[in-house]
Amino acid sequence: MKTVEEIRAAIEAALPGAGVEIVSNPSVSGQHSLRLRPSHAVAVAKFLRDDAELALDFLSNATGVDWPDKEVTEKVKVTRTVRKTVDGVEQDAEETVEEARKRVEPGCLEAVYHLFSVARGHGPVVIRMKTVNRTDQVELPSLTPVWRSAEFQEREIFDLYGIVFSGHPDLRRLLMWEGFKDHPMRRDYVEPDDFEYEPTAHDEVLKRAVAHQAKQEAAGTVAGAAGVGSGVAAGREGKGAGA
């Protein structure tokens, strides 16, 4: 099979200006990938599928990855002019100081596709696409028109990660129900406060009960809080009585 460099060269020869980047994988698996520009992705995908030598007719796996905003602290050398008194004479002197600067690296959502060739028996070739950010510019082109197997998998990515695939024939949530708001596979997803009264609350449930109670009290709905509180207390008493 061709290496990623050769595949990139073949794509560039067929589709000049496609702008495919190689993303190297430092793991021992050696599965390097190609990052496509969303604007050229469908054309490149069609080329990969229809090229006689590559013949990547089988899209096996499509999935999302979440890369949240990252705060990076880096040391920067700054040169500045300082007035100094050297041997009794005041003069300007240059000085290099190391400064720690904090910078927020913007996050993104990524869609990763694993391609194989049934006709030629090779693979995997990994292609990936990145959204601009994680909030409002989360659109990527759908590869379902090229490979039908992306249909449910892209729906799943849309559901769990919130990437919007333009050109998908039937983009709805797959696993969560209609009307569900959040995207559970994102790394900053917060579980909803779904505590319900349990007669024998314990461990995790007890923690959730306390959190729920605090939230209720903060919101000022005391009636609900009292009910939960007595429930938790009853659970404890029950335990004590049993022992």
């Binding site: 994988n25 793991s27 096996s60 796996n61 990994v126």
Partner: peptide, 18 residues
Amino acid sequence: PKPGEAYGRIESPKGELG
């Protein structure tokens, strides 16, 4: 494991499990 990624698959009785 060292940073990086891997895709492994087998022929499970239902099909390709990866």
